[in-house]
Design a protein around this nucleic acid. Structure first.
Lengths: 254, 254
DNA sequence: AGTTGTGAATGTGTTCACAGCC
DNA sequence: GGCTGTGAACACATTCACAACT
């Protein structure tokens, strides 16, 4: 409605390809685990296995960051942890607000992995006056009326929308107007945002539908269509590997 | 450990590109909304706007399904809803189990959008004996001990893992052994599965880190690095549009 | 010998732009 | 005139395979 335009592309990631950026958190997680086990170095092969990618891809990814490895040896774990953290901007503190404290919002607020890596739940916001003041995950819920003030007072630039679909665009507009420039949207709606604002979405039902598609394929090997809807003709060269790996994100359980 | 290999690619999506499959649910959602408003036809331009993509992409996507439009007119809404539903396998019933009924598992169980589109929560499973029997979203929680029986009795092929990270691989192994071939993983871990099993992951912390990366970029226009870590040289031709659109998924709030 | 870093090749996805049909 | 469907061009991503370095 308001904006007309659809999702904005946002500043082009310096030299680092978007696909690589999406994998850095994965590497970081694997490296952190190694670090906790006091492993000093890893080879691309080992780290790739831990992160669930292949080693050529990992080396290529790291090459965009610089030459942080040692030939014949591998990568220094601590050093890489630092470099990736810095690249991702995790060496600074990111106050985050969560809007919509229903089941999901509460789950997100309780998610431990938040604080661990640069993110801090600065506030929880909900439209229900009955929620106001009630603590969720130790943080008192505040009313939507104060949204703008909360954003400004806390210098929040990242917002998480966990409201029902119907409220999402309105909440989004207010967040953006108040200065939020990155939004993680859990509501099943397309959000319209102005240029310069990043939106990422997390959508359970889309994921399930994609799984269903592949599941159906597995079942019906030769399943001929009953109606005469023309089947796609060209089938490309070979199958190759694609995998359902995309560049999705992950939530933490309670 | 067990499998050694990482994520499996799974059966190659007939002729339909993976990127297209990931967008079909988006189109379907927009079409369903139009259908509810009794709109008979849409142009690629209108539908694309509603789905948040550009019209060329949409037309290309639809071309993989067949020629379902009418030149000079557009697409018949009802017909497209049916075709996409069929393509995604939503004309059949998909029983789903959710394992790990913490905050997040409960949120997922309460998610309304489930039933609406072919998916049905067949069972909720948790390792905590104290949870057993307690109803969540009207469905009694069952104990992990019965996981295999539940999967088999209900003919479940899609499982949702919402356990803590530490339990995820083990749960995954049991789901797969019991016959599950598609898994939606909310735990922040890489799951190892045998060939033929699809895994999709939803990871909050990865999403936030990707946002932080772009956010950092927005802030430091000219931010010179303090240390001498070599900046990437080549910067490619133009910026173009990429957008944080990837092919993520979405969860529904309470 | 072992492992990184990277050009080149290949594969996948997006966009353009227009012929073809209504 | 309007809108779809699609070949061709382009852009992005992955993989290969090996030279470069320790």
């Amino acid at each position: 409605m308001a904006t007309g335009r659809t999702h904005r592309p946002a500043t082009r990631s310096r030299g680092i390809p978007e696909a690589t950026v999406a994998r850095l958190p994965l590497y970081l997680r694997a490296l952190t685990a190694l670090s906790e086990r006091s492993v000093p170095t890893v080879s691309s092969e080992e780290l790739a296995a831990a992160a669930g990618v292949n080693s050529a891809k990992l080396r290529k990814d790291f090459s965009y960051l610089g030459s942080y490895g040692t030939r014949g040896v591998g990568y220094d774990v601590e050093y890489l942890v630092y470099q990736i953290s810095r690249e991702l901007g995790l060496t600074q503190d990111w106050p985050v607000v969560i809007v919509g404290i229903g089941n999901l919002g509460a789950a997100l607020a309780n998610y431990g992995g938040f604080a661990s890596r640069g993110f801090r739940v600065a506030a929880l916001i909900d439209a229900d006056p009955a929620m106001a003041g009630k603590p969720v995950a130790g943080i008192p819920v505040q009313h939507t009326d104060d949204l703008e003030k909360i954003i400004e007072d806390n210098g929040v630039s990242i917002g998480v929308i966990a409201t029902p679909a119907g409220a999402a665009q309105q909440v989004c507009d207010r967040l953006v107007a108040a200065g939020v420039t990155s939004i993680l949207n859990f509501a099943p709606t397309v959000l319209n945002v102005p240029e310069g604002v990043d939106v990422r979405k997390v959508d359970l039902s889309i994921e399930l539908q994609i799984l269903a598609f592949h599941e159906q394929r597995k079942a019906g090997e030769e399943a001929a269509s009953t109606d005469g809807t023309g089947p796609v003709t060209a089938v490309r060269g070979e199958s190759g590997d694609k995998g359902p790996d995309g560049d999705v994100p992950a939530v933490m359980p309670a």
